[in-house]
């Protein structure tokens, strides 16, 4: 099982390497250390939002409100910082907003049993609207210079602090998910909700927690986003939900739930973040960015569906072959 998971992440990583190599062949000036490090540094927002999304997908659901969550948090936190509010208070407010949005989504999906796509789509609309209401459609500008430098602050060479911290967080979250009892609950609930209930896993609570985690990650990505971009518009965060879903799927997380890891989601996020840069080096311009993301998402989902069907079919045939060949499958040696 672990081997398979590793293989899933490994293939995502290989895909990333191949992608870089192809662009490098088309345009050798891409393959410099600076460019590649920049790809990773640029991916922080995507990684954070994708890790959150991974939680929603682990439990077999989805959250398409992360883009609006990101935008709204960025707006509120941006305004607070612009008005000279204490950073810690501003960040905490942002995180609370994200958690509240997640709690609301979790309530709708897990408690009220509304299909997650529909419910979070509704939340998405509400939060987008709230952004307009909050700012009156105006841009949030003039953020403190120190805050804007936060994102690009270097750690060693051109590797940034923000990327390093994010990477550490991802690894910690991964370890928590794999090696703690409660961490395993997320995957279990996505794998078989009814079965989870039967072994005493609180399925509803686990789902709500997954959405809260997803909301918090989206909020944090909103804060990082405002630091990186330096201003927030009414459309900030648009399309991040698709990027995040695509990143998860690229990283080997199954949309039917129960399979994958946040490491995979992060690798997928790096790929997503690199696309616009890669397009520039391929002299295509970043106008194709969303189209290509969508095509990749669809391609992987279709391939995944086909592969799942094939494995299921192979498992079935294997089982049948075991029957006709010899009947002594699974039984004990107690004869």
């Amino acid at each position: 099982m672990k081997k398979i998971l590793k293989a899933r992440e490994l293939s995502s990583f290989l895909f990333l390497v191949v992608l870089f190599l192809i662009v490098g062949i088309l345009n050798p000036s891409f393959l410099t250390a600076g460019n590649i490090i920049a790809c990773f540094n640029d991916s922080v927002v995507y990684i954070i939002v994708s890790v959150g999304m991974a939680f929603a997908i682990f439990i077999g659901e989805i959250d398409v409100s992360v883009g609006a969550n990101l935008g709204f948090t960025a707006t509120v936190v941006g305004c607070m910082l612009r008005d000279g509010q204490n950073w810690a208070v501003a960040f905490l407010t942002g995180i609370l907003i994200g958690a509240a949005i997640g709690l609301f989504n979790g309530w709708g999906v897990a408690v009220m049993n509304v299909p997650s796509l529909i419910f979070t789509l509704g939340t998405n609309g509400v939060m987008r609207g709230m952004m307009y209401v909050y700012t009156g459609g105006a841009w949030v500008e003039n953020l403190p210079a120190e805050f804007k430098q936060l994102y690009t602050m270097p750690l060693a060479g051109s590797i940034t602090v923000s990327f390093t911290v994010t990477a550490v967080i991802v690894v910690v979250v991964h370890l928590l998910l794999k090696h703690t009892k409660r961490g395993r609950y997320f995957i279990a609930v996505g794998d078989n909700p009814a079965g989870a209930t039967l072994v005493g896993i609180p399925a509803v609570r686990t789902k709500v927690v997954a959405y809260v985690v997803c909301g918090i990650f989206a909020a944090v990505s909103g804060i990082v986003f405002s630091s990186r971009v330096g201003f927030v518009t009414a459309t900030s965060g648009n399309g991040y939900e698709m990027k995040a879903v695509a990143a998860c799927v690229l990283g080997g997380i199954s949309l039917s739930g129960g399979v994958g890891s946040v490491i995979g989601a992060s690798i997928g996020a790096v790929i997503m973040a690199s696309i616009s840069r890669l397009l520039v080096f391929m002299e295509l311009g970043s106008t194709y960015d969303n189209t290509i993301t969508g095509v990749m998402l669809l391609a992987i989902v279709v391939v995944d569906a086909l592969m799942q069907r094939r494995t299921a079919e192979m498992n079935r045939r294997q089982r049948l072959a075991a029957r006709t060949g010899s009947a002594d499958f699974g039984k004990g040696g107690n004869a």
Partner: peptide, 21 residues
């Protein structure tokens, strides 16, 4: 249960041991 409710993507061992402290 009559129709077993296992976690299809987990190994047999993980299935048996899940939920233990």
């Amino acid at each position: 249960p009559q129709e077993p409710l296992l976690f299809p993507n987990m190994s047999v061992e993980e299935n048996i041991e899940i939920g233990f402290n």
